[in-house]
Amino acid sequence: MVIAIGFEGSANKLGIGIIKDGTVLANCRRTYITPPGAGFLPKETAQHHRANVLAVLKEALDESKIDVTDIDVVCYTKGPGMGAPLACVAVVARTVAQIWNKPLLGVNHCIGHIEMGRLITGAKNPTILYVSGGNTQVIAFSRKRYRIVGETIDIAVGNCLDRFARILKLSNAPSPGYNIEQLAKNGIKFVPLPYCVKGMDVSFSGILTYMEERANTLLSEGYTKEDLCFSLQEHVFAMLVETSERALAHCNSHEMLLVGGVGCNERLQEMMRIMCEERGAKVFATDERYCIDNGLMIAHAGAEMFKSGIKMKWEDCTIMQRYRTDVVETTWRNEHDVLY
């Protein structure tokens, strides 16, 4: 039996979760929300995390009803992410690990998403689409690594949506992507936009520039905000589903797992489901509790690492702003090595 606590703060979400062998004991979160038209910057985000982290920690411990002596391992997000918020949360994790005298593990944020998605949905060996504000990757498991089969060559899809929400001055609460999704439901007129797929890779910077330059003109020509949200979603999601489908075919996979903040968009889930049904595959997705950044996923991935015998030296428990999914050896997965 392993009880793990996880600290997450790589972007504007501060999360602390506690998990006991796959059973959720606590999953607490605060989000730093900026005014409409503005994004979150490292310094202010770190200040938000610093101001809230102890309250969230207390909340998580209370909710879990465990005693800190029962905890087996303290886990935190090592990266990738914004430096200042990462460091701020890592300091808290290091501190409590010393006070409680527990081992400390730094977890790759992307791996956290993947392992949490597998736990919640029960997907065995899925091809993964990981989509969030900072990451856009199509991933397949092969030879002890989560290999990046395709990815964005410039900005992440969530970044594209967030910045588009700023152009329209949409609210950032609860998240810009959520508000785009709600407006898109009432979109009627379809605006053709740039569509950029390169093999298994995608690019979103062109479509964003196109929108930055033309959004106001389009609005004055009789298109509504709803139409623009709808058209943007239809384009960027089609690009993601297309590359995912290509990865499914290339890897002969029959499971598709959707993780990351953008993964809880219901239109994206619906498109993915239709694609999978057309080719006899199954789609797995989770809701905002597990899709959006949280501490639980860090606790769960950390617990898996801990159980497989991984230990981290104190001096290795640092942070890394750039920390790719495919550099982590998945010591906790024993499945056959090559994916066919």
Binding site: S10, A11, G81, C110, H113, G134, Q321, R322
Partner: peptide, 10 residues
């Protein structure tokens, strides 16, 4: 290197 060094925030 474009792929490797890309700033990734999640």
């Amino acid at each position: 290197t474009r792929g490797r060094k890309r700033l990734v925030i999640g």
